[in-house]
Each structure stands twice: as C-alpha cells, then as structure tokens.
Design a protein around this nucleic acid. Structure first.
Lengths: 203, 203
DNA sequence: CATAATATTCTAGAACC
DNA sequence: GGTTCTAGAATATTATG
C-alpha cells in the first residue's frame, strides 16, 4: 500500500479545492455539506476575499466557479431556496473520496459515450429536450461508495492491526517492570470495548 | 455510544442469517456475493444438511427460504442462469450493513407477492417478462451506504480516541519508569504510517 | 526557448421563472 | 424581462523538456 491517492496525477486545482473545503479553519466560509457529498460556500464575499487569494492568484468568485465548471462540478440547489449559500457537487469529489480525485478530468469530456449505435456521423443534433435526472449515475455512485467503504474497512483493519501490535508490545514491556503501572484506565463508560466495526472483529 | 447495532431489536433469524453468511468456515456452502450486496447458497443440499441444523431446529431448505420471504428477501437471478446456486437479496442486508438489520421487519409489508415462494426444487419458471432495472432502489442503496459510511467514521473517531487515551496513559506511565522500554517494534513493511483516512487528522 | 497544460477573465448560450 | 448555471473563447501563467 504505497500511495493510493496518487496525488501527483491529480490536478492542482482539485488538491487545493479539497484543502479549502476540508480545512476546519474556514468551515464558517466553506465546508462540506452534511453528508460529505458536496460542498457549500456559506459566505460568498468573505470566501472570495479571505480564502481565494490564499490559494489562487485572484479573489474572483467567478473565476473560481469557472474552474469548478471546467472540472465538471455542478451547482446544486439547496433546499432552502432563499439561501445565499452556494452548493457544488461532483460525483467524484466527496469528503471520504480523496482517492477518486484522480478520476476528475478537466474539460467537458464527460458526455461522449452515451449511445453507441449511431455509427454514421455525429451531426450536432439540436437535442431539443434534456432528460430530467440521469438515473444511470446512481449505479456509478453506488459502486463508488461501495468501493470506498471496502477500502476504508481494509485500511482500518491494517491500522488496527498495527495499533494492536504496538500496544501489545508496549504492554508486554510494561509487564516486565512491575510497579510501574497500576491499572489500565477503566473505560469509564465501557463503550463496548471497541466500536462495532462491520461484522469482523477488528480489535 | 452504547450500541449502534441494537442487536436486541433485531430478529433472531436475521442475526443467525448474518452469522451464517458471514462465517468464513462455511464460505464454500453459503457466502456473500462479490460486492456484499446479496448472498448465495452454493450447495443447496450440503447447506441444508450441515449448516441449517446448527442454527435452526430443522434441516429443511424450504423452511429457511420461507423465513427469507417473510423478512422480505428476494431471490435474484444470478447471471449465469444454469447455476444451481441460489442468490437472495434484501436492500438492508449487506456485508457492511449489519447496522441496518434492525430495519428489516417481518411480514410482507411491501406489496409484492412472494415470487421466491418455494423456490427449492422448483423448475425454472418461464419468467416471460424480465422487468428492467428498478432505478428507484439505487437511491436507497446510496442512502444506506452513505449512512454506513458516516457511522463508520463516527466509530472510527471513537476508536481513535480510545487508543489515544490508552497511549497517553501508557506514555505517562513510562515517564515514571525510564529505561523500561527500548524501542517500539519497527514496522517491518512500513505500510504508510497509517492509512489515509479522509482528510482530517484522526491520529 | 518552445510547447503543452493549467489558470484567469470575459462573454454568450440555454434553461427556468 | 430577468436570473441562474454552464460553456466558449481569449489571454495569462506556469510547468516541462
């Protein structure tokens, strides 16, 4: 497990964007949405003034949004319509999905392979109507979340294993020096030994 | 965090079922499907003979399937049609979704007839019309996965907190007994310090 | 230095109210 | 008509060989 993230393959804008959104320091101006599937700009003007110039060479909200669009982000209408906050979304840009950053590509190369049969010529048809919701994306979403969750679990297992080993080692070392340690700090609430992580015993 | 799983609110059958499917010992007879979204019985007869009586008071596959139907499971047609394996599915019964077991209620409150009914040695039903994919389920899937992921994160934070506390305790104890411990066991593989868990520093 | 990739700004098209 | 979101296009900046 060297580098799942492959940050060097990710566009600088996306790295910065992830930092901006994730940084707790600016959570009052920009932050992840409740479920971490989108992010929102709470205060446009302050965000543009205080955050943007720290990461980019401008303090222009339009330029920032232009970049978002270039990378395929979409603005989502927050339920409370009269809200001044802006909310943006990209299927591969999620709080727990830093791994998927490398799948976000620049430019509008997203909507190419929809149908395959019209092998004749690709005349730009007016395409009068756009369908409401593209349900096909749900499949992708499910698969992506599933994959993330599994990798997350795997990582956690590895992590837990390491901690376990180290703790066991340290404790055994402490056993050899009696009198040093009295009693382990009783879990005041007895939180169930360890959180119940999936079905497998992780601790 | 007392008990996220609330196992006492989950029907015994579902608990047993989860154990049966998850147990690696019987993976050759019954196991999760590839993505953990359904489970399949590989060998019907051996499963009935060797597994069922260990969990239930019978060795009858029909009774087992009857229970599945009562709890709203649906049989899914596995792609390789001529397969003797049976595959069952419930939106709230997944490998990583033990938490959702409590949402599985008894009785066919949904609507459909038990299409799985007595599907034991049944001849392959004509199944003239195979309805297309029900996209509405994807929303449920996404919501469920999302929920799982969030609870997973929460649990992980708790876990980390505990480890931190214990480590702090041990370290403070070590300060009182210098020379007791030499060196922590070097991570032979150095698996990247700790898996990259979201963006926030969890350790 | 040449070239490509990315960033920034401005403007226009399309959809919606 | 106005508003909002997205895309086109032109220029500037940076990265890379």
């Amino acid at each position: 497990m060297v580098d799942h993230l492959e940050l060097d393959k990710v566009a600088p804008f996306l790295i910065k964007l992830f930092e901006i959104v994730s940084s707790p320091a600016s959570d009052n101006l920009v932050c992840w949405s409740e479920h971490g599937e989108s992010f929102k700009i709470v205060d446009r003007t302050k965000f543009a003034q205080d955050v943007l110039p720290f990461y980019f060479k401008h303090d222009n909200l339009r330029s920032f949004i232009r970049q978002l669009n270039i990378y395929g982000f979409q603005r989502c209408q927050n339920s409370s319509g009269r809200d001044r906050t802006m909310e943006f979304f990209h299927p591969m840009f999620t709080r727990n999905g830093m791994r998927n950053l490398k799948d976000i590509k620049r430019g509008n190369q997203s909507k190419k392979n929809d149908t395959v049969e019209d092998g004749v010529d690709e005349v730009e048809q007016p395409q009068a109507k756009r369908p409401r919701v593209d349900y096909s994306t749900f499949k992708t979403d499910v698969a992506r979340l599933q994959k993330n969750l599994e990798e997350f679990e795997h990582d956690l297992k590895q992590h837990t294993l390491q901690v376990q080993q180290k703790l066991a080692y340290i404790l055994s070392a402490l056993d050899d020096t009696p009198g040093a340690v009295q009693q382990p700090p009783a879990d005041s609430e007895q939180r169930g030994s360890s959180p119940e992580l999936s079905a497998g015993a992780l601790l």
